[in-house]
Simulated assay, not measured.
Amino acid sequence: MYNNIKSQLNALKNNKAFELSVVAVIIISALEIGAKTFPLSSGAISVTHVLDIFITLFFLFELSVRFIADEDKRSFFKKGWNVFDTLVVVISLIPINDSEMALLARLVRVFRVLRMVSVVPELRVLINSLIKALPQLGYVILLMFIIFYIYAAIGSFVFKDINPKLWGDIAISMLTLFRIMTFEDWTDIQYETMEVYPMSWVFYLTFIFFTAFAFLNMVIGIVVNVMEEERSKLRKAKEDAKNIPTIEDLHSEIQQLKALIVQQQSSKEITDKESAL
């Protein structure tokens, strides 16, 4: 009985229509959260309240389906996305009217939009790639901070008298350099210092080369490399999942073996009779 229900729920979980319905409900949840930020009539508030209950119950049902259909339930909550989905669903069940937890419940309902990541495998690959790339990115960020610090110190010493608002100390200078790296009106800053130091363009161009070009491309390269590894793992997992026999396949093979054994026994009995004659 349980195995039958489990196989049916597993088929439902892998059904494309069910997956699309989950995505649709997540989108409706996002629209409903956005609608609550506008002034609403009493009728619209009632509709959003009913819709919120439906969304919460649907997410509870979808999480239950995934848990029951999972082959290894002990490892279900070892996966980060499953823990995140469970927390979002459980906290969404908290009544938000006249409660000290009302603000927390409302904020958690906002994070229901992030469930799109746990539902869509491609989005999970992106997020997992970013997380796994962080250790490698740490060294690039550290090197970038060193470059920022050196150029900020130079800019503060040289350009402080020209514009104290932009180069007054090393902290303000680093903020100015971040503005230059993002190309936010950086030419205005450059032309201002070039009026006093005509060769100061070397300072800006070298800084932009190191940060906006070299380090940014290094960050992109690391993320793309990790993303390709994650996609390879996902493809391998899908191939392995296809090779795993289902309960129906095992049942069919057992029936075939039984039929083969019965056939062999019948052939043996006929052979024994013929030998006796």
Rank of each mutant, 00 (worst) to 15 (best):
Q8D: 12
L260F: 11
G80F: 08
E100N: 10
K73P: 05
Q255P: 00
L103G: 05
P135K: 00
L51A: 15
L137C: 00
F210A: 04
I146P: 01
E248V: 06
H251A: 09
V25C: 00
V120M: 14
A102I: 06
V83R: 11
L40F: 11
N82S: 11
M181R: 04
D272Y: 08
L130Y: 07
D169I: 04
D272A: 14
K233D: 10
S42E: 15
D70Y: 05
L137R: 04
V90M: 07
L51D: 08
L205H: 13
K242N: 13
I94Q: 06
T176A: 03
A259F: 07
M218H: 05
T271Q: 15
L143K: 02
W167T: 01
L250H: 11
F148T: 03
K268D: 13
A102Q: 10
R115P: 00
F145I: 14
A237C: 04
D240T: 01
F18P: 02
F178I: 08
A214L: 15
S92Q: 01
K273S: 14
S99Y: 07
H251N: 15
P164R: 11
R124W: 02
A17I: 15
S29Q: 09
N225S: 12
R115H: 06
L107C: 06
K6T: 01
T193Y: 05
F183G: 05
